[in-house]
Simulated assay, not measured.
Amino acid sequence: MQSRNQKNVKIIDVSHHNGTINWTKVAMDGVKGAYIKLTEGTSFLSKTAYSHYLHAKNAGLRVGFYHYAHANNDPIKEVNFFLEKLRNMKVDLPHCLDLEENKGLPKAKINAFGLKWMEHIEKKTGITPILYTGYSFMSNFSSAVAKYPLWVARYSSLNHVNGMNSPGSSTIWNKWAMF
């Protein structure tokens, strides 16, 4: 996959784990957008999502939301829960599926969950979603899922020590949308 370059737009992801955020400072640091955790599974709604949304928008950032998936659930129920909680908040970035845990399921089940989630939300909203997953988890997906843009996470001390500019290679995706 391609390496980072100076033209890449800086977008962050945040959740209730981040606590209070100085959104003005974030915007001044060159960040152009934020993905905010909205939901998880079929019952968790982030209590900080709406506040993060308002403050990020007021700081001039583009905003999108992500859903942390539980692949052992029904993907349709997870999409419907996400959309129900999204309500009328205006998004500037595509909806995002965060799928990075196998919950003890085989690759075929994880892939099927991801594909069904992505297809269903695209059908319901008309917006092509993006998949967020870790570099080491990408092998759980097939080329059918690769029709969706990839946001790849690669958390490693190498990223910081050696200034890693590429998430590595993939036999499924030939490029990333976000890294």
Rank of each mutant, 00 (worst) to 15 (best):
W151R: 05
A153M: 03
T20A: 12
Y148K: 11
G19E: 13
H160N: 14
F137W: 11
T42P: 02
M118Q: 09
S156P: 02
H52W: 08
L105R: 13
Y35K: 02
K77C: 02
G163Y: 08
N165L: 03
D29W: 10
N102G: 04
S157Y: 10
M1F: 04
V91M: 15
A112D: 14
G168Y: 01
S143Y: 12
I127G: 07
W151Q: 04
I127H: 11
P149T: 06
T128H: 10
S143C: 06
M164A: 09
V9W: 10
L38W: 02
F137N: 07
S142R: 06
L97M: 09
I172F: 03
G19S: 10
L131D: 02
M178D: 00
S43H: 04
D98H: 09
Y50N: 02
T133P: 01
H67A: 06
R87I: 00
I127M: 13
P75N: 09
K175F: 09
F179P: 00
L158D: 11
P129H: 09
K123T: 06
T48K: 11
N162P: 00
R87E: 06
K7E: 15
K116I: 05
S136I: 00
G163N: 13
K77F: 06
H16N: 08
E119V: 10
K109N: 03
S136Q: 01
I11Q: 08
Y50G: 00
K57P: 06
L99I: 14
G163A: 10
G126D: 11
L54S: 13
I172S: 03
N140C: 05
G30C: 00
G163E: 10
Y132F: 09
S170N: 11
W151G: 03
L61K: 15
T125P: 01
F137H: 08
S166Y: 03
H70Q: 12
L131N: 01
F82K: 07
E100Q: 10
H95S: 11
S139D: 12
T125G: 01
M118W: 05
D98T: 07
S142H: 07
H120V: 02
L38R: 00
P106L: 05
Y66T: 03
A146W: 00
E122Y: 09
A144M: 00
Y66L: 03
D13Y: 04
L93N: 14
K90A: 14
N22H: 09
L99H: 13
V145A: 14
N5I: 00
N102I: 13
Y132L: 01
F81C: 01
S46A: 04
V9C: 07
G41H: 05
Q6C: 04
N162T: 09
K123P: 01
T48N: 11
T20I: 11
T39Y: 12
K107R: 12
L105V: 03
I121H: 06
K7Q: 15
L158F: 07
